[in-house]
Design a protein around this nucleic acid. Structure first.
Length: 186
DNA sequence: TAACCGATTAGCT
DNA sequence: GCTAATCGGTTAA
């Protein structure tokens, strides 16, 4: 089976699953997406749950755009907006398998261990050079480049990480057996 | 205007 | 496994 192009007007859960195995590059730096999480409008764990605000307004904009927020006052986290404009759904990119621009990523992260370059949402943004300045930009045009997987990939699911509400919903997706996950699936 | 707190990470035990 | 670091957004008054 060949995975179809990613349809960002689909639900965030469908998009999160179909993004596993896709290749994401920013200015030629990046790799294969191995871990994602889905967030939806009627989801208590989502930033969009309480309606549009200054921070989350991008989530209510057109699909296929980047929503980037600061986490714990320290890190940047990258999301892809889903569904028709105004819905408020997104997919968090949690981990990437580094494939392109390794030297640049090592320099940005101050590390040499490949497995620690992009294994976490904050690490992904640091390695790929993503900041709030990228928020609201379309992710299917430069400097972004998103390529769906041409081969089928085994996807595993589980509960989302680091949230206090809706902990039991299995909306975390990962590439089975990947050593680049932020945490293993059980 | 003040208080509260989080879709995390790195470093230490 | 546990915790400090760190600060803008959200909420309540």
């Amino acid at each position: 089976m060949i995975q179809p192009p990613i349809d960002f007007s689909a639900s965030s859960v469908d998009v999160a699953r179909s993004l596993i195995g896709a290749t994401l590059l920013i200015n030629g730096v990046g790799g294969r997406i191995v871990e994602t999480e889905a967030y939806d409008h009627d989801d208590p764990a989502s930033h969009s749950f309480s309606g549009p605000t200054r921070r989350n307004q991008v989530m209510f904009g057109p699909p296929c755009h980047a929503y980037i927020y600061r986490s714990y006052g320290i890190h940047w986290c990258l999301n892809f907006v889903c569904r028709p404009a105004g819905h408020g759904a997104g997919v968090l990119i949690r981990a990437i398998e580094p494939l392109a621009g390794l030297d640049i990523m090592r320099k940005r992260r101050g590390l040499s261990d490949e497995r620690l370059l992009c294994s976490g949402p904050g690490r992904v943004c640091q390695a790929l050079g993503i900041t709030h300045e990228h928020s609201g930009m379309p992710i299917d045009t430069p400097p972004f480049q998103l390529t769906p997987s041409s081969d089928p990939v085994p996807v595993v699911t589980g509960p989302r990480i680091g949230i206090s509400k809706a902990k039991d919903v299995p909306w975390r997706f990962g590439l089975a057996g990947s050593p680049f996950l932020s945490r293993p699936f059980r």
